[in-house]
Design a protein around this nucleic acid. Structure first.
Lengths: 151, 151
DNA sequence: GTCATTGCAAAGCATTTGCAAGTCG
DNA sequence: CGACTTGCAAATGCTTTGCAATGAC
C-alpha cells in the first residue's frame, strides 16, 4: 500500500463513493483505474491527464496514457468528473466537484481555482427563455494572474 | 468586385474600422487579408478558420489555411476579434463583438449565438476580490440544443 | 528596395482509436 | 471463461512553424 503525502479531507470517502457508482454501472475495478481515481481525488487541484499519468506511473510503471484517458472517459460518462477543456494546453479535471461551477484560471502558470459564489452561478433558465435554446449546462472561466504570478 | 449574398447592416463600416486600426499598427493590407476580414465580418455568425478559408478560397484559389490563421493572429493581437476556443472542433471567431460576452453553443450542430443580457455579465471585480487573482477577462458559454436541433 | 506577408509542407500536441494480449468478476 | 480493460503504436484534427518566394508601401 502506498500512502502519498498530503491527503485531502474526505478524499477517501469520495474515492469510495465513485468506486461504488462505477460498480453499480457494471465497471471493473482494476489497479490502474483505482490508482487514477485516487490520484484524481487526492492529488493537487485540477490535474491534467499527463499529471495523472505521471503520478500513477510512480506506482504502476507499465501504465499507459491511453488508460488514463479511457478511465477519464468512463468517469465522464458516469458524471463523476468535470472536464475543463482547453485548446492551448491539456484538459484539466475535477472529481471533487463534478458539477459545473465557475473557475479562475491563471494565464501564466496554469493554476486553476474554484470560485465559490452562488451569486455567480448563471441562470440557465433565463438563458433558455431568452435564446430559445434548451440549455443543459454552462462553463464560466475567469482569466487572469494568480496571486503568485501577479507578484 | 465580388458582392456576396446576405450583407450585414453596418458590416462595411466595421470592415473599414478594422482596416484603419490595422493601418495604424503598421500592417499591410493584402488582398488575402482583406478578403478574410470581409468574410469574418460579413459572413455567417462565428465562423471557423476552415469556413473562412473556404469562403475566401472561392475568390482567391491560391489562398492557404496558414494565411487565415496568421490573419486571425494579427486581428487577435489588435483586439479586433474574439476567439472562442474549443478542444473538440475548430475555434470560432467573432469580429463584430470583439469583447468578452456570453454565448449559447448548440452541442449538436455547433451553432453559436450571442446572449445579450447585461445581467449575465459576470463581475470581474468581485471575483478578483474573492480569489486574489488579477482577473483580466472571462468566458461564459451555455451549452444545449438550439431551436432547430431541439425539434 | 525593404521587410511584412504569403503559401507550401512539415512539425506539434493532446487526444483517440484499432487491436492483440491480459485479467477482473 | 467471457467480456471488459489494458497498453502499444498509429492515426486524428486543428493549429503552428520554417523558410523561400512574393509583393505592399
Amino acid at each position: 500500500m502506498t500512502t502519498h503525502s498530503p491527503q485531502k479531507p474526505g478524499a477517501a470517502g469520495r474515492v469510495q463513493e465513485i468506486v461504488g457508482r462505477l460498480r453499480e454501472r457494471g465497471h471493473r475495478l482494476t489497479p490502474q483505474r483505482y490508482a487514477v481515481l485516487r490520484a484524481l481525488v487526492e492529488g493537487g487541484e485540477h490535474p491534467s491527464a499527463e499529471q495523472l499519468f505521471q503520478r500513477v506511473s510512480e506506482d504502476y510503471p507499465m501504465m499507459s496514457p491511453a488508460t488514463v484517458y479511457k478511465t477519464l472517459d468512463t468517469l465522464k460518462a458516469a458524471g463523476e468528473v468535470l472536464e475543463l477543456e482547453f485548446r492551448d494546453g491539456p484538459n484539466r479535471y475535477d472529481a471533487n466537484m463534478p458539477h459545473a461551477h465557475p473557475h479562475v484560471v491563471c494565464t501564466r502558470c496554469g493554476r486553476i481555482d474554484d470560485v465559490m459564489d452562488e451569486r455567480l452561478d448563471p441562470s440557465v433558465v433565463e438563458v433558455s427563455a431568452q435564446t430559445g435554446y434548451q440549455v443543459r449546462g454552462y462553463r464560466l472561466d475567469f482569466y487572469g494572474l494568480c496571486p503568485s504570478c501577479a507578484g
